[in-house]
Amino acid sequence: MAVVVRRLVLLVLGAFFLVPLLAMAEFSTRGAGGSRSLESWTAIGSDPDLVEAILASVQLAVTSSVLVLVLLVPTMTWIRLRLPVLRRLVEFLCLLPITIPAIVLVVGMAPLYAWVDYFLGDSPWTLTFAYAVLVLPFAYRAIDAGLSAIDLKTLAEAARSLGASWGTVLVRVVVPNIRTALIGASLLSVALVLGEFTIASLLNFDTLQVQVNLLGKRNAGVSIAVSLLSLLFAFVLLFLLSFVGGRRGSSAVEEG
């Protein structure tokens, strides 16, 4: 009985999720007069605006993950070791973006970005600052889990007693021991940034999703092709992430 229900659930919901994806594949391969054609897919590479937007988004994905890791790893490590009083505050700040929708944040960021434009120019990479805020909660949770899984205090004390400086402790001891958590945080950040639309579009930056949306008005086929491609790319990222997480889980069991 349970087996039948389980199959039915998987079948119905599987169809609900797969049909739109198949429809995207079908729609993006339509040619003139009912034929099949890869025109929409080949057009991806030949649209200079789109290519530029993709490059901008990839660059943003990298800079945002780097910024959030550089900000969080030393701070979170230090707080666990030396300033536990600040732990609640930092947690609150990092999780705050969950409560403030991006659409609200962008209202407050608009005047701020007038200044950013003025000082740093209006290149899309300045979005890094906004995006690091968006990925803050996800990166915080991943790193927090990583730090909780190791005996940070003992490791740091051991390294310090062997003569390591705090910088050495961070780079040579902490980072290698939480690397799976850092990989997880980065992959999540990359996926989120590549999919971000709200802030980029309302601050008038041309990123991947903004271009896809714009293009959809003229040529739905190309937009749908890019959409499918970006969904598949994000899926591959997160699928790889499931193996990273799994290995961490099993090693934790062995140690425990």
């Binding site: 739109p20 996926a191 971000e196 999703q209 949306n213 749908i224």
Partner: peptide, 9 residues
């Protein structure tokens, strides 16, 4: 990740 691609889906 959804967002815009879901609309197009």
């Amino acid at each position: 990740f959804g967002g815009v691609p879901l609309a197009f889906a």
